[in-house]
Write a protein that binds this DNA or RNA. Structure first.
Length: 126
DNA sequence: CGCTTGACCGGAA
DNA sequence: ATTCCGGCCAAGC
């Protein structure tokens, strides 16, 4: 499923696939999701880096109900979805995500990718 | 078929 | 810390 044609639908599915893997209580950024997806063929790597995050946002707008869209925030740890901002914050807080001055501490809640779901941060005492 | 708008990001002033 | 700027893809009207 890597060598599929430059199909937008396939790209969206990759976005949703990644977002679906985000564990409860963690978040990812638009740019991060874009980075985790291979650059679509026919698109310059530079172009993708610049606009990939936007496409992720567009994909979220068309995301199915089983996608935890609320776990996707911008690189500042803030909510960009103005239309449902209130709803998104409530959903995240219900999952245990703490907001500080309308911002999320990404150092604590940002998902590090597949394989890091355990988040073994407890050994860092010094 | 063309114009407008948009759930972004990183660097510079 | 805040504001401005360049980047130039897709969907909707």
């Amino acid at each position: 499923m890597v060598d599929s044609p430059p199909n937008q639908e396939a790209y969206y599915e990759q976005v949703w696939q990644i977002v679906r893997q985000v564990p409860r209580g963690s978040v990812v950024t638009y740019g991060q999701v874009a980075q985790m997806i291979a650059v679509p063929e026919g698109v310059d790597a530079q172009t993708y880096q610049a606009f990939g995050s936007r496409w992720v946002g567009t994909a979220m707008g068309a995301s199915p109900d089983d996608v935890p869209w609320q776990r996707v925030v911008n690189s500042q740890g803030k909510i960009s979805y103005g239309r449902g901002e209130r709803k998104q914050r409530e959903l995240l807080e219900a999952e245990g995500v703490v907001f500080v001055k309308d911002k999320i501490d990404l150092k604590v809640y940002q998902w590090q990718g597949p394989g890091s779901e355990a988040r073994p941060r407890q050994a860092r005492l010094f």
